[in-house]
Design a protein around this nucleic acid. Structure first.
Lengths: 104, 104
DNA sequence: CACAAAGTTCGATGATCGTCGTATCATGTG
DNA sequence: CACATGATACGACGATCATCGAACTTTGTG
């Protein structure tokens, strides 16, 4: 049972908000948004286990936030910013800048 | 153990996103955002049970999205739009308009 | 081929979630 | 006071969640 990542029109708002409600995942998304160059999964969130990381990337992928492909032994990730922005205009930006803005 | 609703500076992004990730709660927030006149809890989401409704309002209140006060036998609710907008500029608007925009 | 590096899969665990029904409380009204 | 109304409290239920470790797969390199 493999998960087709959702097409642009199928991206679900609840799934996106749920995916973004976890700080760890939000951190990954923020890092992905900060630079366009794809990075291997392992270079994110070094403080958590590999399996937990796999889990978080799966949630992001199933929500439609992230696209992944293999490259050698590692797996690259890219933020589907175009799709998200097209489907939910302004949402991603406001979430990311909210994080940056609301530092206590 | 009663919940102090969070002050503006204590409103947590994860809690807000989690609260908004539930369609039922997002519906309540959307209705609250649509009209300024406070309404009793019972006038929302008539398809779910009273206790479930109470639960959802508690999540919204603890996340800082909603303020409530008693008025006679009923309990009124008000969206804390000013606080949310001040803390996370653009977030609430983009979530609400995302819902309206992305009708499949 | 042997080995290392990067991810995935597969339980498992403890926590939280959404929903419900029933009992209870508070407030207003006859 | 008796009763109705609106909401909360208290389990309880199955489902999902975030996290982990151990085993496994895939890919590249000596």
């Amino acid at each position: 049972m493999s998960f087709e990542p959702p097409a642009r029109d199928q991206i679900d708002l609840s799934a996106v908000l749920h995916a973004l409600s976890d700080p760890q995942r939000r951190g990954i998304v923020a890092e992905l948004a900060a630079s366009d160059t794809p990075r291997p999964c392992g270079s994110f969130a070094p403080e958590i286990t590999k399996s937990t990381r796999t889990h978080h990337f799966r949630v992001l992928r199933e929500a439609g936030l992230v696209e992944q492909w293999k490259e050698g032994t590692s797996k690259m990730s890219r933020l589907r910013r175009d799709d998200i922005d097209a489907r939910f205009p302004g949402l991603l930006d406001s979430v990311l800048s909210s994080e940056a803005f609301a530092q206590v």
